[in-house]
Design a protein around this nucleic acid. Structure first.
Ligand SMILES: [Zn+2]
Length: 490
DNA sequence: CGCGTTTGACCCGCGC
DNA sequence: GCGCGGGTCAAACGCG
Protein backbone atom coordinates (compact mmCIF):
# COMPACT_ATOMS: atom_id res chain seq x y z
CA UNK A 1 0.00 0.00 0.00
CA UNK A 2 2.59 2.46 1.04
CA UNK A 3 4.83 1.54 -1.75
CA UNK A 4 2.02 2.01 -4.11
CA UNK A 5 1.37 5.37 -2.69
CA UNK A 6 4.92 6.31 -3.03
CA UNK A 7 4.92 5.13 -6.52
CA UNK A 8 1.84 7.05 -7.23
CA UNK A 9 3.32 10.14 -5.87
CA UNK A 10 6.36 9.67 -7.90
CA UNK A 11 4.29 9.27 -10.96
CA UNK A 12 2.45 12.40 -10.17
CA UNK A 13 5.62 14.27 -9.93
CA UNK A 14 6.87 12.88 -13.09
CA UNK A 15 3.69 13.78 -14.68
CA UNK A 16 4.01 17.29 -13.56
CA UNK A 17 7.47 17.49 -14.89
CA UNK A 18 6.46 16.10 -18.14
CA UNK A 19 3.71 18.54 -18.37
CA UNK A 20 6.02 21.36 -17.76
CA UNK A 21 8.37 20.09 -20.30
CA UNK A 22 5.69 19.70 -22.75
CA UNK A 23 4.53 23.15 -22.16
CA UNK A 24 7.93 24.51 -22.72
CA UNK A 25 8.42 22.58 -25.81
CA UNK A 26 5.18 23.69 -27.12
CA UNK A 27 6.08 27.22 -26.48
CA UNK A 28 9.38 27.03 -28.10
CA UNK A 29 7.87 25.22 -30.92
CA UNK A 30 5.39 27.90 -31.47
CA UNK A 31 8.03 30.48 -31.32
CA UNK A 32 10.18 28.68 -33.72
CA UNK A 33 7.37 28.22 -36.04
CA UNK A 34 6.50 31.82 -35.95
CA UNK A 35 10.01 32.73 -36.64
CA UNK A 36 10.18 30.33 -39.38
CA UNK A 37 7.13 31.64 -41.01
CA UNK A 38 8.37 35.07 -40.74
CA UNK A 39 11.64 34.15 -42.17
CA UNK A 40 9.90 32.55 -45.02
CA UNK A 41 7.92 35.58 -45.59
CA UNK A 42 10.95 37.55 -45.64
CA UNK A 43 12.55 35.35 -48.08
CA UNK A 44 9.62 35.54 -50.24
CA UNK A 45 9.80 39.21 -50.14
CA UNK A 46 13.38 39.28 -50.94
CA UNK A 47 12.85 36.99 -53.70
CA UNK A 48 10.25 39.15 -55.11
CA UNK A 49 12.51 42.03 -55.03
CA UNK A 50 15.18 40.38 -56.87
CA UNK A 51 14.20 39.92 -60.35
CA UNK A 52 14.73 36.32 -60.54
CA UNK A 53 13.95 34.34 -63.44
CA UNK A 54 10.96 32.74 -62.31
CA UNK A 55 9.28 30.70 -64.71
CA UNK A 56 6.34 31.65 -63.39
CA UNK A 57 3.21 32.87 -64.00
CA UNK A 58 1.92 35.76 -62.26
CA UNK A 59 4.73 35.97 -59.98
CA UNK A 60 6.83 37.51 -62.55
CA UNK A 61 4.71 40.45 -62.78
CA UNK A 62 5.02 40.97 -59.19
CA UNK A 63 8.62 40.65 -59.15
CA UNK A 64 9.09 43.32 -61.56
CA UNK A 65 6.93 45.67 -59.89
CA UNK A 66 8.01 48.22 -57.52
CA UNK A 67 9.89 46.48 -54.85
CA UNK A 68 7.70 47.83 -52.32
CA UNK A 69 4.72 46.59 -53.95
CA UNK A 70 6.05 43.27 -54.35
CA UNK A 71 7.05 43.17 -50.84
CA UNK A 72 3.67 44.15 -49.82
CA UNK A 73 2.28 41.61 -52.05
CA UNK A 74 4.44 39.05 -50.63
CA UNK A 75 3.38 39.90 -47.27
CA UNK A 76 -0.09 39.96 -48.19
CA UNK A 77 0.32 36.76 -49.76
CA UNK A 78 1.91 35.27 -46.87
CA UNK A 79 -0.67 36.29 -44.59
CA UNK A 80 -3.29 34.28 -46.12
CA UNK A 81 -2.16 30.97 -46.48
CA UNK A 82 -4.45 28.49 -47.53
CA UNK A 83 -3.64 25.02 -47.58
CA UNK A 84 -5.46 22.16 -48.91
CA UNK A 85 -4.76 18.67 -48.16
CA UNK A 86 -5.65 16.11 -50.54
CA UNK A 87 -5.29 12.62 -49.90
CA UNK A 88 -6.19 9.76 -51.74
CA UNK A 89 -4.57 7.23 -53.54
CA UNK A 90 -2.42 8.35 -56.08
CA UNK A 91 -3.52 7.80 -59.40
CA UNK A 92 -0.43 6.48 -60.59
CA UNK A 93 2.07 4.95 -58.59
CA UNK A 94 5.37 5.25 -59.82
CA UNK A 95 7.68 4.75 -57.27
CA UNK A 96 8.85 8.03 -56.70
CA UNK A 97 10.53 7.68 -53.56
CA UNK A 98 10.51 5.04 -51.27
CA UNK A 99 9.46 6.33 -48.27
CA UNK A 100 9.94 5.15 -45.03
CA UNK A 101 7.74 7.77 -44.02
CA UNK A 102 4.26 6.86 -43.50
CA UNK A 103 2.85 9.05 -45.97
CA UNK A 104 4.08 10.54 -49.00
CA UNK A 105 2.97 13.96 -49.39
CA UNK A 106 2.10 15.22 -52.58
CA UNK A 107 2.29 18.83 -52.74
CA UNK A 108 0.84 20.80 -55.40
CA UNK A 109 1.34 24.37 -55.44
CA UNK A 110 -0.78 26.35 -57.57
CA UNK A 111 0.55 29.71 -57.60
CA UNK A 112 -1.91 31.46 -59.44
CA UNK A 113 -3.27 34.15 -57.62
CA UNK A 114 -1.60 36.59 -59.63
CA UNK A 115 -4.14 38.75 -61.09
CA UNK A 116 -5.99 39.14 -58.00
CA UNK A 117 -2.92 39.86 -56.15
CA UNK A 118 -1.77 42.36 -58.52
CA UNK A 119 -4.92 44.11 -58.26
CA UNK A 120 -4.98 44.01 -54.68
CA UNK A 121 -1.56 45.23 -54.50
CA UNK A 122 -2.28 48.10 -56.62
CA UNK A 123 -5.22 49.05 -54.68
CA UNK A 124 -3.94 48.78 -51.29
CA UNK A 125 -0.43 49.27 -51.58
CA UNK A 126 -0.18 51.62 -48.89
CA UNK A 127 -0.27 49.20 -46.29
CA UNK A 128 -0.53 45.83 -47.41
CA UNK A 129 1.01 44.86 -44.30
CA UNK A 130 -1.56 46.29 -42.16
CA UNK A 131 -4.15 45.30 -44.36
CA UNK A 132 -3.13 41.87 -43.88
CA UNK A 133 -5.88 40.74 -42.23
CA UNK A 134 -5.77 40.54 -38.76
CA UNK A 135 -8.42 38.28 -39.57
CA UNK A 136 -6.11 35.62 -40.37
CA UNK A 137 -3.94 36.37 -37.61
CA UNK A 138 -3.31 34.28 -34.80
CA UNK A 139 -2.99 35.84 -31.64
CA UNK A 140 -0.69 34.98 -29.16
CA UNK A 141 -1.32 34.66 -25.63
CA UNK A 142 -0.16 37.59 -23.70
CA UNK A 143 2.38 35.69 -21.88
CA UNK A 144 3.96 34.96 -25.06
CA UNK A 145 5.03 38.38 -25.65
CA UNK A 146 8.05 38.29 -23.69
CA UNK A 147 10.42 39.40 -26.23
CA UNK A 148 8.44 40.71 -28.88
CA UNK A 149 7.72 44.14 -28.32
CA UNK A 150 9.08 45.62 -31.33
CA UNK A 151 6.44 46.64 -33.57
CA UNK A 152 8.04 45.99 -36.77
CA UNK A 153 8.16 42.62 -37.99
CA UNK A 154 8.91 43.27 -41.47
CA UNK A 155 11.57 45.43 -42.72
CA UNK A 156 9.19 47.03 -44.93
CA UNK A 157 7.12 48.04 -42.16
CA UNK A 158 9.56 50.55 -41.25
CA UNK A 159 8.98 52.50 -44.29
CA UNK A 160 5.39 52.62 -43.94
CA UNK A 161 3.61 53.48 -40.89
CA UNK A 162 1.53 50.64 -40.24
CA UNK A 163 -0.55 52.78 -38.22
CA UNK A 164 -3.68 53.67 -39.80
CA UNK A 165 -3.87 51.63 -42.70
CA UNK A 166 -6.73 50.60 -44.57
CA UNK A 167 -8.79 49.46 -41.86
CA UNK A 168 -8.24 48.44 -38.49
CA UNK A 169 -4.94 49.03 -37.32
CA UNK A 170 -4.25 46.36 -35.14
CA UNK A 171 -0.87 46.04 -33.89
CA UNK A 172 0.84 43.93 -36.20
CA UNK A 173 -0.67 40.88 -35.25
CA UNK A 174 -0.30 39.08 -38.29
CA UNK A 175 2.94 37.77 -38.58
CA UNK A 176 1.68 35.08 -40.42
CA UNK A 177 0.36 36.17 -43.48
CA UNK A 178 -1.32 34.07 -45.79
CA UNK A 179 -4.39 35.63 -46.79
CA UNK A 180 -5.32 33.70 -49.70
CA UNK A 181 -3.10 30.79 -49.69
CA UNK A 182 -4.83 27.53 -49.30
CA UNK A 183 -3.68 24.28 -48.01
CA UNK A 184 -5.54 21.29 -49.10
CA UNK A 185 -5.22 17.94 -47.52
CA UNK A 186 -6.22 14.73 -49.08
CA UNK A 187 -6.97 11.85 -46.86
CA UNK A 188 -8.89 8.70 -47.08
CA UNK A 189 -11.80 8.91 -44.87
CA UNK A 190 -15.22 7.49 -44.77
CA UNK A 191 -16.21 10.07 -42.31
CA UNK A 192 -17.74 13.19 -43.69
CA UNK A 193 -15.10 15.22 -42.10
CA UNK A 194 -11.65 14.73 -40.81
CA UNK A 195 -11.23 15.45 -37.24
CA UNK A 196 -8.54 17.99 -37.00
CA UNK A 197 -9.05 19.07 -33.48
CA UNK A 198 -10.91 22.19 -34.29
CA UNK A 199 -14.53 23.02 -33.97
CA UNK A 200 -16.33 23.86 -37.12
CA UNK A 201 -19.68 25.13 -38.05
CA UNK A 202 -21.05 24.49 -41.42
CA UNK A 203 -22.18 27.58 -43.18
CA UNK A 204 -22.84 26.43 -46.63
CA UNK A 205 -22.88 23.67 -49.12
CA UNK A 206 -22.77 23.72 -52.83
CA UNK A 207 -22.59 21.42 -55.69
CA UNK A 208 -19.21 21.70 -57.17
CA UNK A 209 -19.00 21.94 -60.82
CA UNK A 210 -17.32 18.89 -61.97
CA UNK A 211 -18.09 16.81 -59.02
CA UNK A 212 -21.13 14.86 -58.05
CA UNK A 213 -20.30 15.34 -54.45
CA UNK A 214 -21.25 18.58 -52.84
CA UNK A 215 -18.68 20.79 -51.28
CA UNK A 216 -19.25 21.83 -47.72
CA UNK A 217 -18.05 25.05 -46.21
CA UNK A 218 -17.04 25.26 -42.60
CA UNK A 219 -15.91 28.02 -40.36
CA UNK A 220 -13.83 27.66 -37.26
CA UNK A 221 -15.83 28.30 -34.18
CA UNK A 222 -13.27 27.81 -31.53
CA UNK A 223 -13.09 31.51 -31.21
CA UNK A 224 -15.66 33.92 -32.34
CA UNK A 225 -13.64 35.91 -34.72
CA UNK A 226 -11.51 33.14 -36.06
CA UNK A 227 -11.10 33.63 -39.76
CA UNK A 228 -10.22 30.11 -40.56
CA UNK A 229 -12.42 28.35 -43.05
CA UNK A 230 -12.32 25.03 -44.60
CA UNK A 231 -13.98 23.29 -47.44
CA UNK A 232 -14.59 19.64 -47.51
CA UNK A 233 -15.26 17.68 -50.58
CA UNK A 234 -14.94 14.17 -51.79
CA UNK A 235 -12.97 13.27 -54.77
CA UNK A 236 -15.20 12.52 -57.64
CA UNK A 237 -13.18 9.60 -58.83
CA UNK A 238 -12.64 8.09 -55.50
CA UNK A 239 -15.20 8.94 -52.96
CA UNK A 240 -13.24 7.50 -50.18
CA UNK A 241 -10.89 10.33 -50.46
CA UNK A 242 -11.71 13.47 -48.69
CA UNK A 243 -10.21 16.74 -49.66
CA UNK A 244 -10.10 19.34 -46.98
CA UNK A 245 -8.97 22.78 -47.85
CA UNK A 246 -7.95 25.18 -45.16
CA UNK A 247 -7.68 28.87 -45.43
CA UNK A 248 -6.42 31.36 -42.92
CA UNK A 249 -4.80 31.18 -39.57
CA UNK A 250 -6.44 30.66 -36.29
CA UNK A 251 -6.71 33.66 -34.12
CA UNK A 252 -6.73 31.75 -30.94
CA UNK A 253 -4.88 29.09 -29.08
CA UNK A 254 -5.50 25.63 -30.22
CA UNK A 255 -5.95 22.44 -28.34
CA UNK A 256 -3.13 20.02 -28.70
CA UNK A 257 -5.16 17.95 -30.98
CA UNK A 258 -5.55 20.81 -33.32
CA UNK A 259 -2.06 22.06 -33.32
CA UNK A 260 -0.79 19.38 -35.54
CA UNK A 261 -3.04 20.29 -38.32
CA UNK A 262 -2.62 23.93 -37.79
CA UNK A 263 1.10 23.66 -37.74
CA UNK A 264 1.15 21.49 -40.69
CA UNK A 265 -0.96 23.77 -42.69
CA UNK A 266 1.04 26.71 -41.60
CA UNK A 267 4.21 25.06 -42.62
CA UNK A 268 2.73 24.02 -45.88
CA UNK A 269 1.45 27.45 -46.48
CA UNK A 270 4.79 28.88 -45.68
CA UNK A 271 6.33 26.51 -48.04
CA UNK A 272 3.83 27.40 -50.58
CA UNK A 273 4.62 30.95 -50.19
CA UNK A 274 8.25 30.54 -50.38
CA UNK A 275 7.74 28.24 -53.22
CA UNK A 276 5.45 30.45 -55.09
CA UNK A 277 7.72 33.26 -54.71
CA UNK A 278 10.38 30.98 -55.62
CA UNK A 279 10.73 29.60 -58.95
CA UNK A 280 10.23 26.05 -59.63
CA UNK A 281 13.87 25.78 -60.02
CA UNK A 282 14.38 27.19 -56.70
CA UNK A 283 12.13 24.63 -55.26
CA UNK A 284 13.95 21.93 -56.92
CA UNK A 285 17.05 23.41 -55.75
CA UNK A 286 15.64 23.46 -52.39
CA UNK A 287 14.80 19.91 -52.51
CA UNK A 288 18.11 19.02 -53.78
CA UNK A 289 19.81 21.04 -51.28
CA UNK A 290 17.91 19.46 -48.57
CA UNK A 291 18.66 16.08 -49.75
CA UNK A 292 22.27 16.79 -49.86
CA UNK A 293 22.66 18.85 -46.88
CA UNK A 294 23.77 17.00 -43.93
CA UNK A 295 21.77 19.23 -41.85
CA UNK A 296 19.17 16.79 -41.11
CA UNK A 297 19.83 13.26 -41.49
CA UNK A 298 16.99 11.11 -42.29
CA UNK A 299 17.50 9.20 -39.22
CA UNK A 300 16.89 12.25 -37.30
CA UNK A 301 13.78 13.03 -39.03
CA UNK A 302 11.83 9.92 -38.99
CA UNK A 303 8.78 11.76 -39.86
CA UNK A 304 9.99 13.10 -42.99
CA UNK A 305 8.11 11.99 -45.90
CA UNK A 306 8.84 12.47 -49.43
CA UNK A 307 6.43 14.45 -51.30
CA UNK A 308 5.81 16.05 -54.52
CA UNK A 309 5.30 19.64 -55.07
CA UNK A 310 3.46 21.02 -57.92
CA UNK A 311 3.33 24.46 -59.16
CA UNK A 312 0.41 25.31 -61.14
CA UNK A 313 -0.41 28.42 -62.90
CA UNK A 314 -4.01 27.75 -63.12
CA UNK A 315 -5.24 27.91 -59.63
CA UNK A 316 -7.21 30.81 -58.41
CA UNK A 317 -5.41 30.87 -55.15
CA UNK A 318 -2.03 29.75 -54.29
CA UNK A 319 -2.70 26.32 -53.09
CA UNK A 320 -0.59 23.63 -51.71
CA UNK A 321 -1.88 20.14 -51.58
CA UNK A 322 -0.75 17.55 -49.16
CA UNK A 323 -1.56 14.07 -50.04
CA UNK A 324 -1.89 11.89 -47.05
CA UNK A 325 -3.50 9.12 -48.72
CA UNK A 326 -0.65 6.92 -49.15
CA UNK A 327 0.42 4.60 -46.56
CA UNK A 328 4.10 4.27 -46.17
CA UNK A 329 4.17 1.35 -48.31
CA UNK A 330 2.25 2.51 -51.17
CA UNK A 331 4.18 5.26 -52.42
CA UNK A 332 3.09 7.12 -55.27
CA UNK A 333 4.01 9.62 -57.59
CA UNK A 334 1.37 11.97 -58.32
CA UNK A 335 0.54 12.88 -61.77
CA UNK A 336 0.51 16.51 -62.03
CA UNK A 337 -2.13 18.28 -63.84
CA UNK A 338 -1.08 19.46 -67.18
CA UNK A 339 -0.62 22.95 -66.16
CA UNK A 340 1.37 22.27 -63.15
CA UNK A 341 4.71 20.92 -62.43
CA UNK A 342 5.51 18.64 -59.63
CA UNK A 343 8.63 17.89 -57.86
CA UNK A 344 9.60 16.16 -54.78
CA UNK A 345 9.73 18.01 -51.61
CA UNK A 346 10.46 16.91 -48.17
CA UNK A 347 7.69 17.36 -45.81
CA UNK A 348 6.55 15.97 -42.63
CA UNK A 349 4.07 13.48 -43.55
CA UNK A 350 3.82 11.22 -40.73
CA UNK A 351 2.76 13.49 -38.10
CA UNK A 352 0.18 14.87 -40.22
CA UNK A 353 -1.23 11.63 -40.86
CA UNK A 354 -1.07 10.74 -37.34
CA UNK A 355 -2.72 13.76 -36.09
CA UNK A 356 -4.96 14.31 -38.87
CA UNK A 357 -6.31 11.01 -38.64
CA UNK A 358 -7.12 11.62 -35.13
CA UNK A 359 -4.30 9.64 -33.90
CA UNK A 360 -4.03 11.73 -30.87
CA UNK A 361 -3.34 10.17 -27.66
CA UNK A 362 -6.87 9.55 -26.86
CA UNK A 363 -9.00 7.05 -28.45
CA UNK A 364 -11.29 8.42 -30.91
CA UNK A 365 -14.42 6.91 -32.11
CA UNK A 366 -15.01 5.60 -35.44
CA UNK A 367 -14.91 8.50 -37.71
CA UNK A 368 -11.28 8.70 -37.72
CA UNK A 369 -9.23 6.99 -40.14
CA UNK A 370 -6.20 5.33 -38.89
CA UNK A 371 -3.52 4.64 -41.26
CA UNK A 372 -3.35 1.01 -41.79
CA UNK A 373 0.23 0.76 -41.11
CA UNK A 374 0.29 3.16 -38.41
CA UNK A 375 2.87 2.48 -35.89
CA UNK A 376 3.89 4.22 -32.87
CA UNK A 377 6.36 6.85 -33.63
CA UNK A 378 9.67 5.39 -34.24
CA UNK A 379 11.66 5.50 -31.16
CA UNK A 380 14.70 6.51 -33.00
CA UNK A 381 13.06 9.76 -32.81
CA UNK A 382 14.38 9.87 -29.42
CA UNK A 383 16.31 12.73 -30.56
CA UNK A 384 13.22 14.56 -31.11
CA UNK A 385 11.29 15.54 -28.26
CA UNK A 386 8.85 13.31 -26.82
CA UNK A 387 9.11 10.74 -29.41
CA UNK A 388 9.75 8.02 -27.05
CA UNK A 389 6.97 8.81 -24.81
CA UNK A 390 4.39 8.87 -27.36
CA UNK A 391 4.60 5.21 -27.66
CA UNK A 392 3.14 4.79 -24.33
CA UNK A 393 0.11 6.72 -24.90
CA UNK A 394 -2.71 4.93 -23.60
CA UNK A 395 -3.26 6.26 -20.31
CA UNK A 396 -6.09 7.91 -18.77
CA UNK A 397 -6.98 11.12 -17.19
CA UNK A 398 -4.22 13.52 -16.97
CA UNK A 399 -1.96 11.30 -18.74
CA UNK A 400 -4.32 11.37 -21.54
CA UNK A 401 -4.04 15.02 -21.84
CA UNK A 402 -0.37 14.88 -21.67
CA UNK A 403 -0.12 12.20 -24.16
CA UNK A 404 -2.35 14.08 -26.43
CA UNK A 405 -0.10 16.97 -26.13
CA UNK A 406 2.85 14.85 -26.73
CA UNK A 407 1.25 13.33 -29.65
CA UNK A 408 1.62 16.57 -31.33
CA UNK A 409 5.27 16.57 -30.78
CA UNK A 410 6.24 14.41 -33.57
CA UNK A 411 4.39 16.72 -35.63
CA UNK A 412 6.14 19.46 -34.12
CA UNK A 413 9.37 18.01 -35.04
CA UNK A 414 8.31 17.34 -38.49
CA UNK A 415 6.80 20.68 -38.97
CA UNK A 416 9.84 22.28 -37.71
CA UNK A 417 12.00 20.25 -39.89
CA UNK A 418 9.91 20.98 -42.85
CA UNK A 419 9.88 24.57 -42.12
CA UNK A 420 13.51 24.79 -41.51
CA UNK A 421 14.30 22.79 -44.48
CA UNK A 422 12.25 25.06 -46.51
CA UNK A 423 14.06 27.97 -45.27
CA UNK A 424 17.38 26.56 -45.66
CA UNK A 425 17.00 25.15 -49.00
CA UNK A 426 14.63 27.24 -50.80
CA UNK A 427 15.50 30.73 -50.63
CA UNK A 428 18.67 31.78 -51.79
CA UNK A 429 20.80 30.02 -54.11
CA UNK A 430 23.53 32.13 -52.84
CA UNK A 431 24.10 31.28 -49.42
CA UNK A 432 25.35 32.92 -46.46
CA UNK A 433 23.31 35.68 -45.26
CA UNK A 434 21.86 36.51 -42.07
CA UNK A 435 18.65 38.03 -41.39
CA UNK A 436 17.19 39.02 -38.20
CA UNK A 437 13.61 39.05 -37.78
CA UNK A 438 11.58 40.82 -35.33
CA UNK A 439 8.18 39.92 -34.61
CA UNK A 440 5.99 41.72 -32.41
CA UNK A 441 3.13 40.49 -30.71
CA UNK A 442 -0.04 41.72 -31.60
CA UNK A 443 -3.42 41.22 -30.72
CA UNK A 444 -6.14 40.70 -32.81
CA UNK A 445 -8.62 43.24 -33.11
CA UNK A 446 -10.59 41.68 -35.58
CA UNK A 447 -13.98 40.84 -34.72
CA UNK A 448 -16.10 40.45 -37.55
CA UNK A 449 -17.86 38.00 -35.56
CA UNK A 450 -20.61 40.40 -35.49
CA UNK A 451 -22.30 38.45 -38.08
CA UNK A 452 -25.46 36.82 -37.43
CA UNK A 453 -23.89 33.54 -37.10
CA UNK A 454 -23.92 32.19 -33.73
CA UNK A 455 -20.88 30.62 -32.56
CA UNK A 456 -21.30 27.13 -31.67
CA UNK A 457 -19.00 24.48 -30.77
CA UNK A 458 -18.47 21.07 -31.76
CA UNK A 459 -17.52 20.03 -34.99
CA UNK A 460 -18.95 16.84 -35.39
CA UNK A 461 -21.57 16.66 -37.79
CA UNK A 462 -24.09 14.12 -37.27
CA UNK A 463 -22.10 11.32 -38.31
CA UNK A 464 -18.66 11.91 -37.80
CA UNK A 465 -16.27 14.09 -36.29
CA UNK A 466 -15.04 14.09 -33.00
CA UNK A 467 -14.48 17.11 -31.16
CA UNK A 468 -11.60 17.83 -29.10
CA UNK A 469 -11.86 17.42 -25.48
CA UNK A 470 -13.01 20.71 -24.27
CA UNK A 471 -10.67 20.96 -21.47
CA UNK A 472 -7.62 20.36 -23.42
CA UNK A 473 -6.93 23.77 -24.61
CA UNK A 474 -3.39 24.51 -24.93
CA UNK A 475 -2.92 28.11 -24.32
CA UNK A 476 0.69 28.03 -24.90
CA UNK A 477 0.56 27.04 -28.44
CA UNK A 478 -1.08 29.47 -30.59
CA UNK A 479 -0.58 28.55 -34.04
CA UNK A 480 1.63 31.37 -34.84
CA UNK A 481 3.21 32.84 -31.93
CA UNK A 482 5.55 35.58 -32.06
CA UNK A 483 8.89 36.17 -30.80
CA UNK A 484 11.93 37.75 -32.02
CA UNK A 485 15.02 36.13 -33.01
CA UNK A 486 17.61 35.89 -35.53
CA UNK A 487 17.66 33.40 -38.19
CA UNK A 488 20.59 32.65 -40.23
CA UNK A 489 20.15 30.98 -43.45
CA UNK A 490 22.81 29.57 -45.47
C1' DC B 1 -36.33 26.15 -26.71
C1' DG B 2 -31.52 26.60 -28.04
C1' DC B 3 -28.42 25.64 -31.38
C1' DG B 4 -26.30 23.70 -35.47
C1' DT B 5 -27.47 22.37 -40.08
C1' DT B 6 -30.00 23.02 -44.36
C1' DT B 7 -30.75 25.34 -48.36
C1' DG B 8 -32.09 28.83 -51.61
C1' DA B 9 -31.10 33.64 -52.13
C1' DC B 10 -27.61 36.77 -52.62
C1' DC B 11 -23.01 38.74 -53.67
C1' DC B 12 -19.13 39.34 -56.42
C1' DG B 13 -15.55 38.65 -59.70
C1' DC B 14 -14.86 37.28 -64.28
C1' DG B 15 -15.32 36.27 -69.12
C1' DC B 16 -18.04 37.09 -73.06
C1' DG C 1 -25.14 43.76 -69.41
C1' DC C 2 -25.48 38.84 -68.79
C1' DG C 3 -24.54 34.41 -67.28
C1' DC C 4 -21.66 31.54 -64.63
C1' DG C 5 -19.40 29.84 -60.78
C1' DG C 6 -17.43 30.08 -56.33
C1' DG C 7 -18.57 31.57 -51.97
C1' DT C 8 -21.47 33.44 -48.16
C1' DC C 9 -25.77 34.79 -45.76
C1' DA C 10 -29.57 33.83 -43.14
C1' DA C 11 -34.34 32.21 -42.57
C1' DA C 12 -36.22 27.95 -41.85
C1' DC C 13 -35.77 23.43 -40.12
C1' DG C 14 -35.25 19.90 -36.89
C1' DC C 15 -32.80 17.55 -33.40
C1' DG C 16 -31.93 17.01 -28.63
ZN1 LIG D 1 -9.83 28.87 -35.29
Amino acid sequence: MTSLQVELERLHEENGELKTMLDQMTKSYSQLQAQLLIAMQKQAQNRLREPIKCEANGMLARQFMDPRLSAAAAIDHVRNPSVAYSSGKTPADHEAFSSFSPSNLNIEVMSTERDQYKRRLQTNINCAEDALDRSSQCLVSPNYTSKSSNPNLLDDDNDEPKSSTDQEQVPVADQVPFRKARVSVRARSEAPMISDGCQWRKYGQKMAKGNPCPRAYYRCTMAIGCPVRKQVQRLAEDKTILITTYEGNHSHPLPPAATAMANTTSAAAAMLLSGSTTSKEALQYHHHHLANSGFFSNSQLPFFASSMATLSASAPFPTITLDLTQSPMQQFHRIPPPSSSTFPLPLHGYPINHQLMGGLGHPIPAPMYFPPNYKAPPSPAGVSLGGQRSTSTHASGMVETVSAAIASDPNFTAALAAAISTIMGAPRPHQGHQESININDGDIANNNAARGVVASTNNSPPSANIGVPPGSLQPGSPQLPQSCTTFSTN
